[in-house]
């Protein structure tokens, strides 16, 4: 029989994190991060193996499949909005992928990082399942890729809206595209939490198309640099 510990504790901590968000001190902290920190602390404090936890928690992760497909619904509801702004939207995806890949490469190169590690970090703005596939296909380290992808998403979810507010970006189309393109599904879930439908639609479209473009662009980029 499967140990239900992981499933129960994840749902419980997420619900607690949602309640904690109502406190003035924690109002800016996304529940995903609060719940994640609580989970890590629990697993470490009680010396619980991740495998034991994930035995039933993996069923929660499985629900990400229908949740991702569900994002087709807000896209359908806003097809007019997408058609109206199609030129700027398509250009934005190329800007996002270009900046994400080039800046990652330059920073890692500046730190004299090993080539294999640079390659592992290139798909950092792509949603985890695809990023891991890209990483495998270019011979990088999938574990490091998965790690960087999750941390990028968390960073975007935590600071994305604040950074955009500092840059005086106020348009919901711009905010949604930026969040989805930089922080994939975690950034999109932050837009869902904020509750602005335009942002959710744009973020959903962005993370899907950025994944597609990055899948094609990274091998070309490596070929161009003669790194492959």
């Amino acid at each position: 029989m499967i140990n239900p510990f992981g499933f129960i504790i994840t749902v419980l901590y997420f619900k607690i994190a949602q309640k904690l968000k109502k406190l003035p001190i924690l109002k800016n902290l996304p529940p995903i991060l609060t719940a994640g920190i609580l989970l890590i602390l629990t697993l470490e404090l009680f010396d619980i193996d991740y495998k034991t936890y994930n035995e039933s928690a993996s069923y929660i992760t499985l629900l990400l499949i229908p949740a991702t497909i569900s994002l087709g619904y807000p896209i359908y509801k806003n097809t007019k909005l997408l058609k109206k702004n199609k030129r700027i939207i398509y250009c934005a995806f190329f800007v996002a992928v270009f900046v994400a890949v080039i800046s990652t490469y330059i920073i890692a190169k500046f730190c004299h990082t090993n080539l294999n590690i640079i390659e592992s970090m290139l798909p950092k703005s792509v949603t985890a399942p695809i990023a891991v596939e890209i990483s495998k296909s270019i011979g990088a380290i999938p574990e490091l890729t998965a790690c960087v992808v999750v941390l990028t998403g968390v960073f975007g979810a935590l600071f994305g809206h604040k950074i955009l507010a500092l840059c005086k970006v106020k348009n919901d189309i711009a905010i949604g595209l930026s969040m989805g393109a930089s922080s994939h599904v975690i950034g999109t879930s932050r837009c869902v939490e904020i509750g602005k439908s335009k942002q959710v639609v744009m973020a959903s479209v962005a993370f899907v198309l950025v994944a597609l473009i990055t899948t094609l662009m990274i091998p070309l980029f490596l070929l161009f640099l003669n790194l492959d």
Partner: peptide, 13 residues
């Protein structure tokens, strides 16, 4: 959706 992503954060361990 955000809840389904929580195990990924614990996976960083």
């Amino acid at each position: 959706m955000a809840m389904f992503l929580v195990p990924f954060i614990a996976g960083l361990l």
